[in-house]
């Protein structure tokens, strides 16, 4: 079991008011799965992904990532887990505008402490995986939105993570390049990567192994993969 949530809650304290972004959620995700998360705006999808991605700790409950209790780990350990085991893809790409595609992709390896040659070699490889070998020296503003998101995917891949988390990766793209990105994610899945995709698009969600539906911070449905497959047939 890669990920196991046991009654995980996340509460944001805003002065007097407590915002319950996640409410006692329990579920598991196995290695090799492609899971989608859907739900209305403000339902807690990004918050859920933050906790899964070790960007924030749960307020209550127990979160096991590869059998390790995340809520008890130090900031430094969380940073190490994010660096080595998790790849992030964002709606707004989050590329560094001053850096080339290659430098952007190599950044996680810098924090991993790899020597420069190794970083560059692996970043090149990751860029070729997303079909951008001919754009490695371009800066983000010299790339189309779809290309930028592919650079971001290469960056998520470069540390060979256990899981890739994508928060509305097509939200800022037109349908054609969005489609290409989804296709790329499916290709990664076929190659054995574990993925979580947050999306508003029911159709895109339907193409994944399993869909977790969340509302007001509560998971209200986690469709069975097999049933999903039948439905797909």
């Amino acid at each position: 079991m890669l990920i196991q949530f046991k009654a995980v809650s996340k509460v944001y304290q805003m002065g007097e008011v407590a915002v319950h972004a996640l409410h006692q959620n329990s579920f598991t995700i196995d290695s090799g799965e492609f899971v989608s998360i859907v739900g209305p705006s403000g339902s807690g999808k990004t918050t859920l992904l933050d906790v899964i991605g070790c960007l924030s700790r749960p307020t209550n409950g127990c979160y096991l990532f590869k059998e390790e209790e995340v809520q008890n780990l130090s900031d430094r350990d969380l940073a190490r887990i994010r660096n080595e085991k998790i790849g992030f893809i964002f709606q707004t790409f989050h590329l560094l505008g001053r850096n080339t595609a290659l430098a952007n992709v190599a950044l996680p390896l810098f924090y991993a402490g790899l020597p420069k040659e190794a970083r560059m070699a692996r970043a090149r490889e990751a860029l070729s995986q997303v079909g951008l070998s001919d754009r490695i020296h371009h800066r983000p503003n010299q790339l189309s939105g779809g290309q930028q998101q592919r650079v971001a995917i290469a960056r998520a891949l470069v540390n060979n993570p256990d899981i890739i988390l994508a928060d509305e990766p097509t939200g800022n793209l037109d349908s054609k390049s969005g489609g290409e990105i989804i296709e790329l994610l499916h290709t990664l899945h076929k190659h054995g990567h574990t993925l979580i995709l947050v999306t508003h698009d029911k159709e895109l969600a339907g193409l994944t192994d399993r869909t977790i539906t969340i509302k007001d911070g509560r998971i209200i449905g986690s469709e069975d993969p097999r049933k999903q497959m039948e439905h797909f047939r």
């Binding site: 991605g53 960007l55 900031d75 430094r76 940073a79 190490r80 994010r82 660096n83 080595e84 992030f88 989050h94 560094l96 950044l107 996680p108 924090y111 991993a112 960056r155 540390n159």
Partner: peptide, 15 residues
């Protein structure tokens, strides 16, 4: 946002 990204990619506080 850049700081957030760097942390997401594994930058420690010290980095």
């Amino acid at each position: 946002a850049e700081i957030g990204l760097r942390k997401a990619l594994g930058a420690s506080r010290r980095a």
